[in-house]
Nucleic acid binder design. Structure first.
Lengths: 347, 347
DNA sequence: TGAAATCTCGAAACCGATTTCAAACTTTAT
DNA sequence: ATAAAGTTTGAAATCGGTTTCGAGATTTCA
């Protein structure tokens, strides 16, 4: 019979101790396997632990050893499948190492993020992982970095990217390689008129993608055209309005690189509406390879990151930092090209 | 200058007390506003709290008042936008009421869910919300309900749906109304050959949707055709293979109700591949109105639930139960029809 | 003005674990 | 047999808050 209660009240280490005829210290020792306990007693205690399916109060444990065994994750928005994938990978990795995860969604708002960081501090999380920073300008960079610096002085923080003016652990995607894969893929298919849709240049990784694209064009003696760059947000609306703008040009592009699958969805929608077929008329590729890439018609050619590895690395750094271990140098996450239906050779 | 540390060590209520020249009890009283404190002292203490941006240790507080101010959420998979939307709504509602949220993804596996429930118990969460139950048969119903009953005897649990053999609070969607909205919508557009794709009849809400559909057909003297029902999972693959089956029939349907937006995406893909246009040739509608509905081309007509209200209700019940308040009778969540591009009048 | 009622506030106990310390008990070596 | 060394164990302190209790200060009212 599985039961963790006796007289309908949560049992403690003292209840176990009493029933086993030993002291609480001994029960604790059995629980944590931290010191020798005579075999006979050990078995007696263990039997009771099993009998009641006893699990020590995490609050008391945390208070005692000043560790919560909780890792805080501040994500921009788990409703975004990119963050969701990364979050789940982190959760899995954390759980495997005996940690739990406290998730907060900042929705890109700086004030909200600061609030949540304070909350995580109050919860005494052992480390914080930030995936996807703020995009709102509701707080100045200076205020923000000051607040975050303050938090970081107490709790180790690892970021998937960078925070301006704050030094903390950072695990990044190799954006240069990602951009190279996509651009080269299109070049190999014969495309020369390649447009970029979505993303802000003040976002670190976006800037790298943009620079790399430009660099590769130059290397291949292809003219860079300012009008093929349509910056914006990271949503489908940006893709939609962006592609409409591109199709108004004298020389319309034959391929489009969207900043993520959302933007790509908007691009596909815009093209379809105007009677263009993907990929027959125009190829569309994107970053992130979320499940959206697989859901759209045609399925999207996209850049994948192996989210499990990504999450594991974030958690690994976070736990190492939390436990005061040395954190070895951090290699960036390697992107992979997944070719599907949305890209084809130029006709 | 924002700073919560002094001598690089986390400060406590005692540090504040010492510096203010009062006892820890007084600081606590100011902190919780639980008793009178002479104005002069109160201000002195408050000034220090502000100065250091002091936040009381949640572990200590939780241990002391035997409440963690944490609500555990067991979700099937936040990567599914339906659960993600509901989760974010819950998080918002919880935060607004001073609670934090501990998220677990069961991935539909019973063993994993049981494990996570135990973990949540160990964390001493004040209540548990389950959104999206298990679909794997890795644990028998009997074992599962026994384990869950055991947990529920200690921690109040609210479920968005039902758990067989376990009595706990339950907030459900009005599936009958949802099915009615969709079926009537198609009937009004002139459709008489309506197919159902995806979903398992042993899932409570799916069964209701199925029954309601049948009922409405009967009421309208429309022949019910077994071959128009293609059960399966809740993913796009099911939609894809389902629609292929339907298109092999002598009399192909003119409208398809997908069990969710994923299945609908698969249906649209299948139709497009075979040269059918949506909605010109065949209308496609679905349940859940996740952002996928807005992303596909054409945009999907779908059933929305007002996730904010849904989440708020779940949290409201959870907190009431946690605080020992009476939980009033629970009205089901009212669904709404959102008409977009994927449904059109029969030609 | 003095007794009664009300406020204010600190000491101490408590929540439930871990950990240090030293006493008591075993085992080993001479 | 006895000293030395090693093991096992419980009492007590600790983590950082909240809460009860009662003493002392203040206010109210006759």
């Amino acid at each position: 019979m599985v039961s963790d209660t006796k007289d309908n009240k949560t049992i403690t280490i003292y209840d176990i101790a009493k029933e086993a005829g030993v002291s609480a210290s001994t029960v604790s020792r059995v629980l944590t396997n931290s010191a020798n306990v005579r075999k006979e007693k050990k078995e007696r205690v263990q039997a009771l632990i099993d009998k009641y399916n006893f699990k020590p109060n995490a609050l008391a444990k945390g208070l005692s050893d000043t560790k919560s065994h909780l890792i805080g994750i501040v994500s921009a928005d788990v409703r975004n499948p990119f963050y969701a994938a990364l979050y789940v990978a982190c959760e899995n990795a954390a759980r495997q190492r005996g940690y739990n995860v406290l998730l907060c969604n900042s929705l890109g708002e700086g004030t909200r993020e600061i609030e949540q960081l304070h909350m995580l501090k109050q919860q005494r999380v052992d480390a914080i992982i930030q995936i996807g920073g703020r995009v709102d300008d509701d707080v100045t960079d200076k205020t923000f970095s000051k607040e975050v610096t303050d938090i970081v002085s107490t709790i180790p923080m690892v970021v998937s990217g960078k925070i301006e003016g704050v030094k903390c652990y950072s695990v990044v995607i190799d954006a240069k390689e990602a951009s190279t894969l996509l651009t080269q893929h299109l070049l190999q298919l014969g495309h020369r008129k390649i447009a970029l849709v979505g993303g802000r240049l003040d976002v670190f990784s976006t800037k790298i993608k943009y620079d790399t694209y430009k660099e590769i064009l130059e290397k291949n003696n292809i003219e860079f055209r300012e009008e093929y760059i349509v910056n914006g947000r990271y949503d489908s609306e940006t893709g939609y309005s962006g592609v409409k703008k591109l199709l108004g040009l004298k020389e319309i592009p034959t391929a489009i690189i969207a900043i993520n699958d959302f933007a790509a969805a908007g691009v596909v929608r815009g093209l379809t509406e105007l009677g263009f077929k993907v990929p027959e008329d125009i190829s569309v590729v994107s970053y992130d390879n979320t499940y959206i890439a697989d859901l759209l018609t045609p399925k999207l050619t996209s850049i994948d990151y192996d989210y499990e590895t990504f999450g594991k690395k974030l958690i690994d750094v976070a736990i190492k930092a939390a436990e005061g271990e040395e954190v070895s140098s951090l290699n960036p996450i390697t992107p992979h090209l997944v070719v599907r239906e949305s890209s084809a050779a130029l006709r």
